[in-house]
Amino acid sequence: MAKRIDVSDLNVYYGDFKAVEGVSMTVEPRSVTAFIGPSGCGKSTFLRTLNRMHEVIPGGRVEGKVMLDDQDLYAADVDPVGVRRTVGMVFQRPNPFPTMSIRDNVVAGLRLNGVKSKKALDEVAEKSLRGANLWNEVKDRLDKPGAGLSGGQQQRLCIARAIAVEPQVLLMDEPCSALDPISTLAIEDLINQLKETYTIVIVTHNMQQAARVSDRTAFFNLAETGKPGRLIEMDDTATIFNNPNEKATEDYISGRFG
């Protein structure tokens, strides 16, 4: 069920401002691809174009092509809502729905799209929570509010919520930046398991994390503030961290940036 993403010559705009320029890349199925780069280089913006979340922001638009296997995500007859069901997303800050219980949070994507059968929903809830390594911690309090969990548990709840709709691809926008090291480890273990099933793209500021979890790494950079961000290079993670082609990548990775 995992799918390949092919991006060709993608420009991303906020209104008149070009935020990302000329990105072409391939994301392999059943692998983890990490995006690294300094703040403001457009890696999160680019990530959001992969499930058309970018359009939620007023003025957000793109030029270029994003192919999910052989389907163009930006074709005129493609519904962005459908794209987001296929390409799920986990955000920087855990954001469980405050009015919903743990169970309802997990199955929110199905329930809000019209699935009513309680039995089916309960099964999905258990499967997704197990998939997110959270089942054992919450199985006795599924009716308690999701906001009552710890930060790391909330983030795993959000991952369970994202995989409950059975997406093909899972996008993660700095999923561990608000978490402590132990919760981070739990999420990284989870990412390693999830990549058996899903195509995963993760944005991270933590280079050790990129080195630990990803198979391939893409380095983004921008020439200066106000200029659009670009993809500098993309390669196997080991190559990027040990023997990058570009000087800019090496400078960034070795901490000599700026």
Binding site: N51, M53, V56, V81, G82, V83, R84, R85, T86, G88, M89, F91, R93, N95, P96, F97, P98, T99, A108, G109, L112, N113, C158, R161, A162, V165
Partner: peptide, 25 residues
């Protein structure tokens, strides 16, 4: 806004996001 985005990212249409997530909150 994060709650709206979380809902959109699950493939929930905008009107349902408003009626089932925003208004209850």
């Amino acid at each position: 806004n994060e709650l709206r985005e979380a809902s959109y990212a699950l493939g929930v249409p905008k009107w349902k996001t408003i009626t089932k997530v925003v208004l209850p909150t």
